[in-house]
Design a binder for these strands. Structure first.
Lengths: 347, 347
DNA sequence: CTGAAAGCGCTTACAG
DNA sequence: CTGAAAGCGCTTACAG
């Protein structure tokens, strides 16, 4: 399918004006008279002139576009982040081109190359699980293209990062259970090779410590990817203990759902017998019964913040700030029924 | 932030070759000797040459990029479709730039203009709820840019469309309830100004008719947007009837969840007393208890199919096929506990 | 197998 | 307030 487009030059010929004048008129340049601007705009509409912004990008060396690399678009967390990025970028006049790495390092490297060719002005990325070497991102720095990471961010590599305060969030969540009267609190932990899950575990431990609660290692269940099925296994393991926990802090909402369902099947009352707190505020957390107390992980906000930082870096001429900022977003604990063991206390 | 990039011309100078030769060598042109190709590639890597694909796009008038317009990225259905589009497009060498209309016609029009300027080679769109006038899409046709719609597609406007067979899917879902022994089947219906929900209602009615079941108008509950809360209202209305339904076909999974929870609270057994079928196969449908029988709405597949059709249209030189194709995807009924009233029967 | 030349559709410094 | 001219970094038909 092809068509020849009407160009700025065609418009100039029609109006017997120089292309430079047309260009300025359409760009609302102050040196052009209003009368001319009006004439140009009218004629442009009349003959259906559509400016070729690729030519403009090429000439100006500004594409007004940013690249996004995520593991999967259809993971709800990422779709929220992307939504936030798009929203902020759109309002700032940038558009976003999106790629999924499928958690493959090889694909992530390919995508990085494509983005370098495509002259995006900045990149927002959440690393593939496989990624431990960041060479493919270093090239962006050489090209003067800023990169902002979110969620799964590089360790031991100086970079712009948007994260949430996992330690503090986990601490607060666990302390909430303590405030609700729990004395024997378990934790369903994420993969400990991932920074955020290490922090969540650490926050849990710190809260127990602060309140001088006994730390029973059997009450910490380590999972690989916090899947629903792993949550079921964890909950069943807790059930098999000689003494049950009276509260569980789960490192995500899926495992919180599993725990609730396993315990209910065993005729254990939630939250009376065991109080549950999840993490992430997935949509399911406010549908399942009882609704789950959870930590709002600020996904949409994370996207906006990443875009905001990135666009500042793009538009800043000051190279110094290019690779050093880490923004830690505040989360909030959303208290729902699953942890309301003690109804008199409002956390 | 700026840097001057190394250009193809710089590379030519280094190697004392013509730019045309470099261009061909990098493009693996058959007329170039292997020795030269190797030299060029080596030098390119050595000095860190990154081809400027904007210049190339501009020159070739091919951007290898497609635009996507969706109401919201963070709606799970759309994130699945986008994921499918990205997957297929990536494998075909196209990349995708994404925009959300937030269901606003005005914004959809703005986006259409941006996409025309950006010289995308094709567009995939799901219309905003507000959109009833398609003028902003007609311009694409004039420019020779194919457009493929999915899910919320234009009515009374000749266009490429990817949809599922809602009538048939609803028919099958309802018939499944009949096969399970239900005699008094209700329906929670979506907004009847939307084509797909009209078809789902029609499919439900047709199944009742085929099996000569009484059609009680009180058993059809019309909702505005099939929200969880509306589902609760619908279910409560059913509860207030002098005679309860023994099966309900819900036009989405949210309302199926509401129904299950309302009925359970009223000590009604699912599926023994009332069997439930949902629609869409949202993640929640296989987590809620009992797991929900539902129709797989093929979201990811829809994205792949849209991309496939679009790319065919882009690469076809035959203008004839530009705006006429409608592809209706087959769905499948996923049978789970919520409808297994009669365990002897496998649908 | 390699090169010289033109040109894609804009923008912008310079000139008047 | 408007115009002439150069050029962004590639590609490609033409020539040899």
């Amino acid at each position: 399918m092809k068509k020849t487009r009407i160009t700025l030059k065609d418009l100039a010929l029609e109006l017997k004006l120089a292309p430079s004048t047309i260009s300025r008129a359409l760009d609302n340049h102050p040196a052009i008279s209003n009368a001319t601007k009006k004439r140009v705009q009218q004629k442009a509409d009349e003959i259906g002139f559509v400016p070729n912004s690729i030519a403009s990008s090429f000439r100006k060396k500004k594409t007004q576009s940013i690249g996004i690399i995520v593991p999967r678009i259809d993971v709800h967390f990422h779709s929220l982040v992307i939504s936030g990025i798009e929203e902020y970028s759109y309002d700032s006049g940038y558009n976003v081109t999106i790629f999924q790495s499928n958690n493959s390092l090889k694909r992530e490297e390919e995508i990085a190359r494509i983005l370098q060719n495509k002259m995006v002005e900045g990149v927002i990325a959440c690393l593939a699980i496989e990624t431990e070497n960041y060479d493919h991102f270093k090239k962006f720095k050489k090209l003067g293209v800023p990169v902002v990471f979110y969620d799964r961010v590089p360790s031991n590599f100086d970079a712009n990062k948007i994260v949430i305060n996992d330690f503090e969030s986990a601490f607060t969540a666990t302390e909430h259970l303590i405030n609700m009267g729990c004395k024997r609190i378990g934790h369903i932990a994420g993969n400990q090779s991932t920074t955020i899950f290490k922090y969540r575990l650490a926050g849990y431990k710190a809260a127990l410590e602060k309140h001088q609660l006994n730390m029973d290692p059997r009450l910490i269940s380590y999972t690989n990817d916090l899947s629903y099925d792993e949550g079921v296994e964890s909950a069943e393991a807790f059930l098999a203990l000689p003494e049950l926990p009276d509260g569980i802090f789960c490192a995500n909402d899926y495992t919180a759902v599993s725990a609730i369902q396993v315990f209910r099947r065993a005729n254990i009352k939630i939250p009376e017998d065991i109080a549950i707190v999840g993490f992430s505020n997935y949509p399911i957390s406010k549908v399942i019964e009882p609704h789950i107390t959870t930590v709002n992980d600020q996904a949409f906000q994370m996207g906006c913040t990443a875009a905001k930082l990135l666009i500042r870096l793009i538009e800043d001429d000051d190279d110094d700030s290019i690779n050093s900022e880490t923004i830690s977003l505040k989360t909030e604990l959303i208290v729902r029924e699953s942890s309301m063991k003690n109804k008199d206390i409002i956390n």
